[in-house]
Write a protein that binds this DNA or RNA. Structure first.
Length: 902
RNA sequence: GCGGGCGUGAUGGAAUGGUAGACAUAUCGGACUUAAAAUCCGAAGGCCCUAGGCCGUGUGGGUUCGAGUCCCACCGCCCGCACCA
């Protein structure tokens, strides 16, 4: 009997699947369709364990659906545009195109050995002209439909790299690559009108029942709907009134000042007239728009000298301040401040010595406002001590409604709904992206390119030796004829944000070679994505943009109505993590340290004096062991080996730990950290596959944690997974070589088999992969120990192979063949549990006395309640507890439990 | 600050309100072996010397015949958003 050799098995079956073409998806057929998709990768050049986990999960679903008679679409592609390719070109030379396509080839080569059930005939990269040309067509249609427009916007500008930076690319106010101080600059940019769909994108979230509640909530918060009052303050100088928006109009009597954004038109006007204000506004603009910049920014204000009248009392004048914390692109860019009931306003008033007016509602205590503002609760009733609409007691929500009504009736304000969601700026001053297909003509202005001229291809002859966008300085690329008048004109050199590329790729997979963005018949058949799987990091942007695109594509006729929400079900999987081993070199520190608070403190102390000596060790460089206290510890492998200590010798390792003379090495274990090259804790799937095979890697990433949680990769875990697969192979081999007659153990084994079929299927269908795997372990144990006859065992082993096949497809094919299965296991019908076999004829019921388990009885499964009660009461434990008395109550849960209350 | 989630053995984690700790890792013991590896068998939440029993799912309360699970409060950790008016 041969041993389990993953290398041989896996290559063989991958070839067999290829030859049979079972993963190629075609529209025809009367089976129900099933579209499963994992978020496509960026071609960095190496696959990582996160990819393995993500694609394995999708593959489990895809293979299970295939076996349950579905017409499965399971495609793969590459999110191939983006900065890293250009950065590589700048850093190491070469061309982004070659770099990217080279990486794709490498990654495809690393991915194929995983044995994924992918239809590779549909593969594309977003940097293929065939793809981005269609994206340009889509852009033109969206422009036509009024879903794209150009406007001036304030952006993060990197003056060294000469490009716009996304907020995430600004670190501490500096460009992430150049290190230059980022400026806020106003540029003309292209925008998608996503905000016009705010309400639709928000309300449709309710229909996404199979999305994680967390993701829906994150999108809801991101869209940020709020309801409030918009009204104007008359200026005493008679100039244009200042319009403000507030969500708490009920606190209007607490107004202290009116604030405007530094970008507000009034501020801009004053800036031109008054150098002091110009200086103040410039100060406000410094530091970009990043979170950090905002976080650390102190509240700054400047009294403009303008005065306005309170809408409820023309004799009440309020000053108008420019304040740095007011954003121009939310609401009207102007607010009224109520320090008593808003912390931010209170801080500002304290700083600039503005009046803090009385409170207007009361909670239980009437402590006056000092440093903490009272925020009126929205749903709790409070007593209003002074409210202009005559309220005395109301919740915040009621107070707001009443106030809006009051203002509307009085004619000085109106209730409005606002959204935080802003339009999506898609222009990037980069080369490696999809060119925006428009032309700038001196006489016609901005003119869309003609569709027959698409794709507008990126030129290949570009250089990256200078900062900025190579398209800008290309000698000929910009030159073109105006699509409108035919005169000499210039191309737009901005390219699209790479999020555009990933906002419709799922639709393109339904017809990847179509001459139009999609083929409606194919889209009608394959859409929606039945199951989408990816990381939680895309909870907002990618998924929101895709939802927007699905709607835009429907408006422009590229997707059917049913695809308005493109992802029927979404699953967000956790990361694959690995311990980090942090080592401090050459220290005269006591002993060898592990994890735990003391070790952390000690290390922190040491790091203070030796800040440069920490380094990260590769897992191979340390030996982990368990100290006598039960703490996990690690020592330098080289140090242990020098002393002749074997890695498995825990006694010697413990002694080393205690040995004062072995001081000088500290290895700190940081468990379960994100894999990162710089921390030397990346496990390369390629190495795992060559050592253990793809099935082992697949099995392990699914086995140890629920799929939505992080899973820690450990060498021991991977080895254990491999051992288990070897065991299954051995057990199946023994069965196939045996010849035992049927016997009275058969039934028990087959019952267990049906239970396993049931439990594993439920697990696979509900993302309970770890639970399914636990059942498979248990059933393997049962099968290995069973004395049943060969026929029964062979049958059980075949079902085991089938149940394992979504996770370990290669091994399962091998076992299937070994055990005499017909054809490929991949296409064999999924096992169905016999309901009659799921319930045993006799069941063991625990007997509780007053809720505590005291005994158990074995009864027929269909014994009626009264009979069960009689049996239960006759048990010794119950008799003893009753001591002759009658029980107060007896609860019999059929097939579950009996509880006797005495 | 606002919103959400999670706290179960040494570890990852099981458990439609019904026998807490399945399954796995690590650990320990045994068998086989000249030996090692591989494999197989077994032990194992804590405490009471044992029989038997008591305690036990972050803490404190509550609902229930029965709570890891539901409700309230608190503590701790994690995630998302955030000068959003």
């Amino acid at each position: 009997m041969s041993r389990y050799s993953a290398t041989e098995i896996e290559a063989k079956w991958q070839e067999a699947w290829d030859k049979a073409g079972i993963f190629t998806a075609t529209r025809h057929g009367d089976k129900p369709k099933y579209y499963v998709l994992e978020m496509f990768p960026y071609p960095s050049g190496r696959i990582h364990m996160g990819h393995v986990r993500n694609y394995t999960m999708g593959d489990v679903i895809a293979r299970h659906k295939l076996a349950t008679g579905h017409n499965v679409l399971h495609p793969m592609g590459w999110d191939a545009f983006g900065m890293p390719a250009e950065n590589a070109a700048m850093a190491i030379g070469g061309h982004p195109k070659e770099w990217t396509y080279g990486n794709i080839a490498d990654m495809r080569g690393q991915m194929k050995p995983l044995g994924l059930s992918i239809d590779w005939s549909r593969e594309f990269a977003t940097c293929d002209p065939e793809y981005y040309g269609q994206q340009q067509a889509l852009f033109l249609d969206m422009l036509d439909a009024g879903l794209v427009y150009r406007k001036n916007a304030v952006v993060n500008w990197d003056p060294v790299d000469m490009t716009v930076l996304a907020n995430e690319q600004v670190e501490n106010g500096r460009g992430w690559r150049s290190g230059a101080l980022v400026e806020r600059r106003e540029l003309t940019q292209w925008f998608f009108k996503i905000s016009s769909m705010s309400e639709e994108l928000l309300s449709a979230l309710d229909t996404l029942e199979n999305w994680p509640a967390k993701v829906r909530l994150m999108q809801e918060n991101w869209i940020g709907k709020s309801r409030g009052l918009q009204f104007s303050f008359e200026r005493t100088d008679g100039a244009e009134p200042i319009t403000v928006y507030t969500t708490r109009p009920d606190t209007l009597l607490g107004a202290s000042f009116v604030g405007i954004s530094p970008d507000h038109p009034i501020a801009k006007q004053l800036e031109a007239e008054n150098p002091e204000i110009a200086e103040f506004v410039a100060e406000c603009r410094k530091g970009g728009t990043t979170e950090e910049a905002i976080e650390t920014a102190e509240k700054l204000g400047y009294d403009t000298g303008i005065r306005v009248k309170h809408p409820l009392d023309p004799n009440w004048e309020l000053p108008v301040w420019i304040a740095n914390f007011i954003l121009m692109d939310y609401g009207t860019g102007a607010i009224f401040a109520c320090p008593a009931h808003d912390q931010r306003d209170l801080d500002f008033c304290r700083k600039y010595d503005l009046p803090v007016v009385d409170t207007f509602f009361a909670l239980d205590d009437d402590t006056p406002v000092d440093k903490i503002a009272f925020v009126p609760p929205k749903t709790e009733k409070v007593r209003w001590v002074n409210h202009f609409a005559g309220l005395t007691e109301a919740t915040g929500d009621e107070a707001i409604d009443t106030t809006v009504d009051f203002a509307e009736k009085a004619g000085w304000g109106e209730g409005v709904t606002k959204y935080r969601l802003r339009d999506w700026g898609l222009s990037r001053q980069r080369y490696w992206g999809c060119p925006i297909p428009v032309v700038h003509c001196d006489s016609c202005g901005v003119v869309p390119e003609k569709k027959e001229n698409l794709p507008i291809r990126l030129p290949d002859d570009v250089s990256f030796d200078k900062p900025g966008n190579p398209l800008d300085r290309h000698p000929t690329w910009r030159a073109c004829a105006c699509p409108s008048c035919g005169a000499a004109a210039k191309r737009e050199t901005d390219t699209m944000d790479t999020f555009v590329d990933s906002s419709w790729y799922f639709a393109r997979f339904t017809a990847p070679h179509a001459e139009t963005p999609t083929d409606l018949a194919e889209a009608e058949y394959w859409m929606n994505v039945d199951q989408y799987i990816g990381g939680i990091e895309h909870a907002i942007l990618h998924l929101l943009y895709s939802r927007f695109f699905a709607r835009a594509m429907q408006i422009t006729g590229h997707l059917p109505k049913k695809a308005i929400e493109p992802f029927d079900a979404l699953f967000t999987q956790g990361m694959v993590t690995h311990a980090i081993y942090e080592f401090v070199e050459g220290l005269d520190a006591p002993g060898v340290q592990g994890s735990g608070p003391e070790a952390d403190e000690e290390l922190a102390e040491v790091m203070k004096t030796n800040p440069t000596r920490a380094k990260y060790l590769y897992p191979e460089e340390v030996i982990e062991f368990v100290e006598m206290t039960g703490e996990k510890r690690a020592v330098l492998r080289s140090a242990a080996e020098k002393l002749g200590i074997n890695a498995t010798d825990s006694v010697a390792l413990n002694n080393l730990w205690l040995d004062e003379d072995a001081r000088g090495q500290m290895v700190k274990i940081i468990p379960s950290a994100k894999m990162s090259k710089s921390k030397n804790n990346v496990v390369d799937p390629v190495n795992i596959i060559s050592a253990f095979g793809a099935d082992t890697a697949r099995w392990f990433v699914l086995s140890d944690s629920p799929p939505e949680r992080d899973v820690e990769w450990t060498a021991a875990g991977a080895e254990a997974a491999h051992k288990h697969l070897s065991r299954v192979y051995r057990v199946a081999s023994e069965i196939s070589a045996s010849d035992n007659p049927a016997n009275d153990e058969d039934e028990a084994l087959l019952r267990e088999m049906h239970k396993t079929i049931h439990d594993v299927t439920v697990g696979v269908e509900s993302f309970g992969f770890n639970a399914s795997i636990a059942k498979l372990y248990a059933f393997t144990n049962t099968l290995a120990k069973s004395k049943a006859g060969t026929t029964a065992k062979r049958q059980a082993a075949r079902k085991l192979a089938q149940l394992m096949s979504p996770m370990t497809p290669h091994l399962s094919e091998e076992l299937w063949q070994l055990l005499g299965g017909e054809g490929l296991i991949a296409t064999a019908p999924w096992p169905v549990a016999d309901a009659a076999m799921l319930v045993d004829d006799t069941v063991t019921l625990p007997i509780q006395i007053n809720g505590k388990r005291r005994a158990e009885i074995s009864v027929a499964k269909d014994m009626d309640k009264a009979e069960v009660e009689k049996v239960a009461l006759s048990t010794e434990a119950v008799q003893k507890a009753l001591d002759g008395a009658t029980p107060k109550k007896v609860i019999v849960v059929p097939g579950r439990i009996v509880n006797v209350v005495v």
